[in-house]
Write a protein that binds this DNA or RNA. Sequence first.
DNA 1: ATAGTTGTAATCAAAATGATTACAACTATA
DNA 2: TATAGTTGTAATCATTTTGATTACAACTAT
Lengths: 141, 141
Amino acid sequence: MKITSRFTVAVHTLLAIYVLGKEYKMTSDFIASSVNVNPVVIRRTLSSLKAAGIIDVKAGSGGAALIKDADDITLYDIYTAVDCVDGDLFNFHENPNPECPVGKNIHAVLDTHLTDAQTALENELKSVTLSDLMKQLNLLI
Amino acid sequence: MKITSRFTVAVHTLLAIYVLGKEYKMTSDFIASSVNVNPVVIRRTLSSLKAAGIIDVKAGSGGAALIKDADDITLYDIYTAVDCVDGDLFNFHENPNPECPVGKNIHAVLDTHLTDAQTALENELKSVTLSDLMKQLNLLI
DNA sequence: ATAGTTGTAATCAAAATGATTACAACTATA
DNA sequence: TATAGTTGTAATCATTTTGATTACAACTAT
């Protein structure tokens, strides 16, 4: 199974706020039309990013804005904010048989390797900042 | 979302074949009782591992056995065999608005970073062989 | 006061997963 | 060669997750 598109939606949302935030009021409707998803999906994304301290959202009057330096926001922060993966990335079969020498030790043998793989992925996400993406984007606009 | 437990089930299955294969006939029922899942789930796992050239399964009389050196089977091979992830690990929202400067360029900006993260995970899985796991397991039995 | 928003709950349909039933095809062996 | 034990696979089913959508109370700038 794949990692939810909430992640790419959130990254898209932040970049939109950065690029268009000075010219337009960044309402959920506005962002939704750039990302092309339902506005409620964007509101949920904004809620998560707000809870993570990345943006501020004005209730009532509307509009979202970054409240953190783009150099200090990594893809990992966004990935965490929208809760792509709840703890472990790998599902593990629930009840290996403890009466079996393999079932009894499968976690001891496998867990660290799974964690290492997940960590490798997350470290890669930590190495990219929103600022990096903004720079890339500016070259293309 | 998480990566399907087919992966850990497959690893467990291979280790069971290794550890118990000389003493017992490794039928889907037998393996299923170690992993603690339905025998049909194991038969499907065995089918995948067989299609990947990792094991041989005797139809009719029953029993599975490794047909490849454990040094040459990595966690990545198993992960690929059971098709944990179909292509991309990260889902991407389907139709970013091409009329928007962000929507138009979001793939150009983000795709390589997502691929890098996925590659980091997969490289980690490539660095561990079934042989490594067997050695670890032998120390615990 | 009002129009435009946000925040959030409630539903819904679609997709993926793993469990399970069922049964045809196959094979060792008695 | 008849049989018992298996595999291979299709078909269902319930559960979970996802994202879309409707609905509406709460909020705020004007």
